[in-house]
Amino acid sequence: MFKLAKPTLVAAAVAGSLVAGAVNAGEQFGLGRTATAEEIAGWDIDVRPDGMGLPVGSGSVLDGEGLYEAQCASCHGLFGEGEGRWPVLAGGQGTLADERPTKTVGSYWPYASTLYDYIYRAMPFPAPRSLTPDQTYAISAYVLYLNEIVDEDFVLTNENLADVKMPNEPNFFVDPRPDVANTRCMSDCADPAALQVTGSIGGVTPVGHFIEGADGPAASHDAQHELEKKMEMERLKELGVEVEEEEASSEPAALSEAAVAGEATYNMACVACHGAGIAGAPAVGDKAAWEARIARGMESMISNAINGYAGDNGVMPAKGGRADLSDEAVANAVAYMAESSQ
C-alpha cells in the first residue's frame, strides 16, 4: 500500500507538454479517472432548499407516524420532546429570544430540505442509510407535523418539499464578524474597585477526572449514566415513590468463555445502543427485556445480530452496522450481553 514513487521529472515533463496552450490548467497530472454517472448516483445523496437532489418519492404524515415511533421515538421522544440528552425535535416556537431558548426543527431550522437530507444521510443513529426515500419523506412529514408546520393529512413529495416554508427562515443572516473592537489599552484599563470576580458552581465541573482517575464518575459516559441513575433513584425515594432496588450483585454470575471474549466487542461496537437501550435495543442488565429473547435461544439471537433484524421497536442493522466484525466476535458479544442480563 502506498509504496508509490513520486512522479519523476520525466513524467512531469510529459504531462506538462500535454497542457501546453490548454485554457484550463486542469490536466497537469491527469490523475484519477472520470467518475461514472452510476458511481456518482450511488453517493450523491444531498438535497438543497430549492429541491435539488430530491429523489422521486413521497410519504404521508400517517405513514411517518408508525415509522417515527419505531425508528426515532426511543431517542427523540414520542412527541419530539427528546429523551435524556438526545435532541428535542418539536416545540420551542417563540422561545429563541428567551433566557433559555429551545432550538428545534420547528422553532429554529430554516429549511425543510435539511430534515430530509439529514434523516436520509445519518438517521436512525444506530443504522445510518437504512431508510428508503419514501420512508424518509414520511418521517420528515411526521416531524413537520409534530411542529405544526403541516396538517395531519399532508403528503410530502419531491414536488412540494421546496415549498414548505419554515417559520424561522427569515431570521438567519451571514456572519458579520469581526463584531467587537477591543483596544490595546496598557494601563488604567478598568476600575480595580469595580471588578466583579465570579467562580464556578461547585460540583458541576469534571475535576473528578483528576481526583478519581479514569473510572471516576466524571470521566466517562457510562459512569455518568450510572451516577444519574443513582441520583434519580435517590430523588424518587425522597419523594416516597416505591422504587425497585437493583439487586446488589454480591457475586456477579460467572460468564462463559465466549461471553468473556465478547465483552471487548460489546464495549466497542454494541454499547452505543445496548448500553442505554436506545432505538429499541434491549439494554444490557434489563432482565425483562432479555427474558423472551433468551428463551428463543442463543442461535436465534446470534443469527439476528449477524444478519440484522427489523422489529416493532427498531432496527438492528447487520452486526450492528459493524461489517468489519467477524461472526464469532458478534456471537461472543451476544453471549456477553445475554449472560449479563439474566
Binding site: D46, V47, R48, P49, D50, K103, V105, Y108, W109, P110, Y111, S113, T114, D117, Y118, A122, F172
Partner: peptide, 10 residues
C-alpha cells in the same frame, strides 16, 4: 448555492 445541511443550520 450552499446546501444548508444540518451542520450549518441546526
Amino acid at each position: 448555492k450552499p446546501w444548508y445541511h444540518r451542520e450549518e443550520t441546526s
